[in-house]
């Protein structure tokens, strides 16, 4: 199963105190992430599968169906090169 996302080695993901949000850093640039995007990205640790991430998020934010949102975000993140799937 290649559905374990991790941050791509050519990007950095971190909490920025001064911006009060998670950010993606790359050569000479920065993208500020929304709260929900940050919650998804911080779970892309190369260990959890996409399904496990969804389960964990639905546990943390009960009563919301997050499946499509998470999958859409991960598709975008991969298109931007921020994450890759472990082989």
């Amino acid at each position: 199963m290649n559905n374990i996302p991790e941050i791509a080695p050519t990007f950095r993901f971190q909490w920025e105190e001064a911006q009060d949000c998670y950010v993606i850093l790359y050569p000479e640039g920065m993208v500020k992430l929304s709260g929900s995007a940050g919650e998804i990205m911080k779970r892309c640790d190369g260990i959890k599968s996409t399904e496990e991430i969804i389960t964990e998020l639905e546990g943390a934010f009960p009563g919301v169906d997050l499946k499509d949102d998470v999958r859409n975000f991960l598709d975008n993140a991969r298109n931007n090169g921020w994450i890759r799937y472990k082989p």
């Binding site: 920025e16 001064a18 911006q19 950010v23 850093l25 000479e28 640039g29 920065m30």
Partner: peptide, 8 residues
């Protein structure tokens, strides 16, 4: 401390 993130 003042918020600098990118360093060249």
């Amino acid at each position: 401390k003042m918020g600098a993130t990118q360093l060249g």
